[in-house]
């Protein structure tokens, strides 16, 4: 029983660490909301509505790194693969911790994508006719900013599911 406890104990810590990534989308989407409100203030009749739409779309994309962290945390809490996986306890427990640490990288894309959503909402607020071009550039830039979050997710999933050592 002793072995089991270590794995579950460090999985709990890992799940907690993973959720630190929530800082990113928090800051990013806050910035986007501020910019959309600013755009609504400056150009309420024409620019407000498209700016809000773009802000919501950008915020939805900025949410992905938060969702990935949630996924890793829920995997560790409810469907912990480390428990049923054979191997040395110390390594499995440390893998749970490592997976939690890896997901902290979600802070970066969260902030970055939120900033992109804010700037795009601001730009659409100024010139609503250019919404499609602006949104296309925003989505492209956000997807590029997502890559390191994806790397972290992959390393975390590797640590959780694959018998590496």
């Amino acid at each position: 029983m002793e072995q089991h406890a270590w794995i579950l104990a460090l999985s709990a810590i890992g799940a907690g660490l993973a959720m630190i990534a929530g800082i990113g989308p928090g800051i990013g989407q806050g910035f986007a909301a501020g910019k959309a409100a600013e755009a609504m203030g400056k150009n309420p009749k024409y620019g407000g509505r498209p700016a809000t739409v773009v802000m919501l779309l950008g915020a939805a994309v900025a949410e992905t790194s938060g969702i990935f962290s949630l996924v890793v945390a829920i995997i560790m809490l409810f469907a912990n693969p480390l428990v049923s996986r054979g191997g040395v306890t110390a390594i499995l427990a440390a893998s749970a911790l490592g997976a939690g640490f890896a997901m902290i990288a979600g802070i970066g894309p969260g902030i970055g994508q939120g900033y992109a959503a804010g700037k795009a909402a601001e730009a659409v607020g100024k010139r609503p006719k250019l919404q499609s071009a602006i949104v296309r550039t925003m989505l492209l830039g956000q997807a590029v900013a997502q890559t390191t979050g994806i790397y972290a997710l992959i390393v975390a999933l590797l640590l959780l599911f694959v018998n590496l050592f």
Binding site: T64, I67, F68, V71, I74, I75, F78, A79, A143, V144, Q146, T147, I150, Y151, L153, I154, L157
Partner: peptide
């Protein structure tokens, strides 16, 4: 590397979430 990991990570993440949701 970034092109393949981006597509792979997003779709795999979605698949895992759906599998988790349906079983749990």
């Amino acid at each position: 590397v970034s092109l393949s990991f981006r597509l792979f990570g997003n779709i795999l993440g979605g698949t895992i979430i759906m599998a988790l949701y349906y079983t749990m």
